[in-house]
């Protein structure tokens, strides 16, 4: 379990991570979403002590990462997938990392096998493709058999097969009871992989929600087509209900359930030719969330459609 309490980082007078408080639970894949520059990578660097926070703290299993005797046993991290010496073989790269914790060579060969690099492990890694480099980075993250894995944009630049491989790997790690925390700026990818989402915008927490909740709570509207749309429109008009008329004359109703609309139309004897529930996609829900983060800059940034993040007592 990874816990962040008021984590804050400033570069100059720019606050790039702003009072982040949330918990990443074991057993599920948690997506860390936010637009470019939202502070995801900075947050992850602080998690593993590469960068010191200006305020707040981050702990893994109750203690700061840097205070664990065998830190890579707690968190395995992939921050920069391209990071390797081109003249060094994949196996030597991993052996050097493993040696720090006296992790045996057999474990090195094991993770090489898990990521599917066995055949090229002895070659100089300079010639690796983007995907092979990514796999090597993930092998490094798995080396310490960590309780939590933290991966920064692991699918960036991967082909569909590679993406599916990572997705399956992450789910498998979560199913084993590990904490899995993965950043992305693509909601479409996270929607397929993650069960829980932490969304940040401009360094601030925008949402801390399960994917299911986000879908359920994202704005829905009902599309109604009726030959007597004008009458139907006045029939539906009330406080908290917004009705707009589309180009094709159909009504777009928010604030009323579909059943309610149908019942009222039937009660007034108005014919209805179409009644469709229109659900905002996750992508739209996400864009809405992060747009608000910008709009409400400088104040609390939670929107009504967002469940209040579960916070630990301060």
């Amino acid at each position: 379990m990874i816990e962040l309490h008021g984590l804050t980082k400033r570069y100059g007078d720019k606050t790039v991570v702003d009072d982040l408080t949330f918990t990443v639970e074991p057993g599920v894949v948690t997506g860390f979403l936010g637009p470019n520059g939202a502070g995801k990578s900075t947050t992850m660097r602080m998690l593993v002590g590469l960068e010191a926070p200006d305020a707040g703290r981050a702990t893994v299993n109750g203690r700061p990462y840097t205070e664990h005797a065998a830190p890579v046993h707690e968190i395995g991290v992939l921050l920069d997938a391209g990071a390797r010496h081109p003249g060094r073989s994949a196996r030597d790269h991993l052996l050097a990392l493993a040696a720090t914790h006296r992790i045996p060579a057999s474990r090195v060969d094991e993770v090489i096998d898990v990521v599917g690099l066995t055949e090229v492990a002895g070659q100089r890694s300079g010639g690796f493709s983007l995907g092979m480099g990514q796999r090597l980075g993930i092998a490094g993250a798995l080396l310490g058999d960590p309780a939590a894995v933290v991966l920064d944009e692991p699918v960036n630049g991967l082909d569909p097969e590679g993406i599916r491989w990572i997705r399956d790997l992450l789910r498998g790690l979560a199913d084993e009871g590990r904490t899995v925390f993965v950043s992305s700026h693509l909601m479409s990818e996270m929607a397929l992989t993650a069960e829980h989402l932490v969304v940040v915008g401009r360094g601030r927490l925008v949402a801390d929600t399960s994917v299911a909740d986000l879908v359920a709570r994202s704005a829905t509207s009902v599309r109604v087509r009726s030959p007597r749309a004008h009458e139907l429109r006045s029939l539906l008009a009330q406080r908290d209900v917004v009705v707009t008329t589309g180009a094709d004359g159909a009504l777009e109703v928010t604030g009323l359930r579909m059943e309610e609309i149908g019942d009222r139309a039937a009660g007034a004897g108005l014919a209805v030719h179409e009644l469709t529930l229109q659900q905002a996609s996750l992508e739209e829900a996400y864009l809405e969330l992060t747009a608000d983060a910008v709009e409400y800059h400088g104040s609390t940034t939670r929107t009504p459609t967002t469940p209040a993040p579960e916070r630990t007592a301060a």
Binding site: A96, R102, A147
Partner: peptide, 19 residues
């Protein structure tokens, strides 16, 4: 979980030698 040993000075020296 694999038994994992703490970071040690000797291990880090070995790591640098491998590099």
């Amino acid at each position: 979980r694999h038994a994992s040993r703490a970071v040690s000075a000797a291990g880090v020296v070995r790591s640098e030698w491998i590099k």
